[in-house]
Computed example of a mutant assay.
Amino acid sequence: MSSPFRKGARPHGVAAAVLALALSLLPALAGALELPRARSVPGGVALIDLGPALVAPQASVDGVPVLVSGRPGGWTAVVGIPLEAAPGERVIEVQREEGPAARVSFAVAPVRYAEQRLQVAPGKVDLSAQDLARHERERMRSAEVIATWSAAAPETLRMRPPVPGRRSGSFGLRRVFNDQPRKPHGGMDIAAPTGTPVVAPAAGRVIDTGDYFFNGHTVWLDHGNGLLSMYCHLSRIDVKAGELVATGTRIGAVGATGRVTGPHLHWSVMLNRTLVDPALFLADGGR
């Protein structure tokens, strides 16, 4: 006997009633991950309701896969918004198990991040030809890391601070050196003494470690479905690529490697290849 739930079939009669009952019971039977704090601005996170479905819909933005979290009673697309995004309407593509792809729009509100103007020695702003060539090689390597997508869903979408300390640099800060604008700050800086342990804020897999010109000793973690995190300026690295780490596992120690003026941890979080504010993933908002 053929199943009324085979692909391409429309449930009807008793089958439809069973499906409706299953959807009504599943929210009570299956827990969903706690979502990050929504802030639909450049550099923020948009939470888009995709409705109920027995199988999680697939979503993408500009051709890049988007993390979808939830349960059959209701799914949510968790979308990272680029810092350079203009306020207005953005669109994600949603593909359900059956039917054509749909376009779902959401609004991006304007935001104004702090600006810092500094006067520094010219040699600290412009790179030498050798340093510029190194940076370009490292930029290509980073692009490969950033494109990581693993099918396993994250264990959590809420993170613990990777190191205790005062937040010394906020996400989105716009720095201007000698009247030359630089890219906005793509992470959270946490001030702490050299040697302070840095731990994984959520379970994941180490996908890259290395010594970078700007970032110094660096560790990248893959938490699943395009949720990545990066830890920079470390004085030491205590993990290797391919290693699985649990929440709270030591991955390195605070340092001042790379282009920095003092010891601190630079922590970045990325969704769908987009840097977003790490504070949105902290229970206390990063205070």
Rank of each mutant, 00 (worst) to 15 (best):
S2Y: 07
G8Y: 03
L21R: 14
L26I: 13
L29C: 08
R37H: 13
L47T: 05
P57C: 05
S60H: 07
G63D: 08
G63N: 09
P65K: 03
V68Q: 00
G88W: 07
G88L: 06
R90P: 00
I92D: 00
E93W: 02
Q95T: 13
E97N: 11
P100V: 04
P100T: 04
R103M: 08
E115A: 14
E115Y: 03
Q116V: 14
Q116I: 13
R117Q: 13
Q119S: 14
L127E: 08
S128H: 08
E138P: 05
R139S: 11
S142H: 10
I146G: 00
S150P: 00
A152Q: 15
R158P: 03
R160G: 08
R166D: 11
R166L: 12
F171C: 07
N178M: 10
M188D: 11
A191E: 14
P193C: 06
P193S: 09
T196A: 06
V206D: 01
F213W: 12
G216Y: 04
L228Q: 03
H233S: 04
R236V: 02
V239Q: 05
E243D: 12
L244V: 09
L244Q: 15
G248L: 11
G248A: 11
I251D: 01
G255F: 01
G262V: 06
L265H: 02
H266R: 08
W267S: 02
S268D: 11
L275W: 11
L280A: 09
R287V: 12
